[in-house]
Each structure stands twice: as C-alpha cells, then as structure tokens.
C-alpha cells in the first residue's frame, strides 16, 4: 500500500497536546533515568529570522548506554526502564524550546545523537534533523560534510547544550529526506 500524503499541522494544533511534562525525559513510570541529566535548548526561526511560536518539536534518542527502547534494537532487553526516549515541546514567543533529558550513549556505529522533528503551520511535511554532541565518524554526519558544524549542539554550560534550528536562510539547518 502507498503511504498517506502528509499535510501541515496548521495553525490550530491544540495547545493541550503539548503538556508541560512532555519535554522532561528524565523519568518514566516513577523511575529516574540513568545517566547525566542535561538540558537541550534552542531557538527556531524562519527565513527572515523571525522566531516561531507554538512550533512543535519532538525528539527521539537512545538511553545512557546507547540503547533504543524498541524491539528492533538487539540490546533492547537491557534498555533503561526509567527512560522513555521520546519528548515533545512547543516553542515560546521567542521561538525557544527546552528539553530536559539525559546525555545519550553511542548506538552501534554512531556518535551520540538526538533525532529531531519539527512540525508547524506552513510545513506541509515534517522536517527531520539530528543533533550531535561533538564531531566524529558517523554515517549521517558524513553526508553533510561542508555543513556538519550546523548539526553539532554547542556546550553552553556543563549541562546545557544549545541547538538552534534555522528552517531557511543563513546557517540553515541541514534536514534529511529518508
């Protein structure tokens, strides 16, 4: 069967769908996640640099040992029971999102990273990108050789990583088609 066509989230995605706790990945079912707690934060802007409010950002990442909580991961039986791996945030009026999460470990063959999705009015398709913590050999980073620095989060404080997302224009974030 052929996958259904995508469409924009539109301007009226219900605010109640982005509940305040959904951007906190540091606990799950009453357990604390293992690993180093960090904050990932950034500003999302369009071509003219204007910040975008109420834009929806979702992330998906491995746990502190680099294991994904999903049966396709051969190591998933050892996944951290206190870490769900998914979160959602909406940007504020300055275009800023914040996640509280743990620093992921390196999945097999990959550098530690966090998958991002951006959904918004005017985006007829979800935009997907990946944030890395530092440069290193990685099959996804190697695809964007001349722009790879734009995929690497900046260590603003010991436990704060900033990752700005520019949808279009100067320092445009590389997005993936997969």
């Amino acid at each position: 069967m052929i996958p259904t066509g995508e469409a924009t989230l539109g301007p009226f995605f219900p605010p109640r769908y982005v509940d305040a706790a959904a951007n906190d990945l540091t606990q799950f079912e009453g357990r604390k996640a293992q690993g180093e707690v960090i904050e990932i934060s950034g500003r999302v802007a369009q071509e003219d640099g204007a910040p975008l409010e109420n834009l929806v950002v979702e992330i998906w990442q491995a746990d502190a040992q680099g294991i994904f909580r999903h049966p396709a991961d051969p190591r998933h039986a050892q996944a951290d029971p206190g870490f769900f791996g998914w979160g959602r945030a909406a940007t504020d009026k300055d275009g800023r999102y914040v996640f509280r999460t743990i620093r992921p470990g390196a999945p097999a063959g990959r550098q530690p990273h966090v998958n991002f999705m951006v959904m918004f009015s005017g985006l007829l398709r979800i935009l997907k990108t990946t944030m890395f913590f530092e440069d290193g050999p990685d099959p996804v980073l190697s695809l964007v050789s001349n722009r790879r620095n734009l995929l690497i989060g900046k260590k603003a404080e010991p436990t704060l990583v900033t990752f700005d997302i520019r949808l279009r224009g100067e320092n445009e974030t590389p997005f993936f088609d997969d």
Partner: peptide
C-alpha cells in the same frame, strides 16, 4: 508561509539506521 519556512538547500537523502528504525511505542 511555505517559502519562509521550508529549507532552501536540498534535503539530504540518508539511509535509515537503527536510530530512525526505532521509535516511541
């Protein structure tokens, strides 16, 4: 809104890895 919010650069085609072939259940 579409010409302001969609990337100018072509999207980078990538082969999915385990990271994109898992997801929140």
């Amino acid at each position: 809104q579409t010409p302001l919010r969609n990337p100018r650069e072509p999207l980078v085609r990538r082969e999915p890895t385990l990271s994109e072939l898992t997801g929140p259940l």
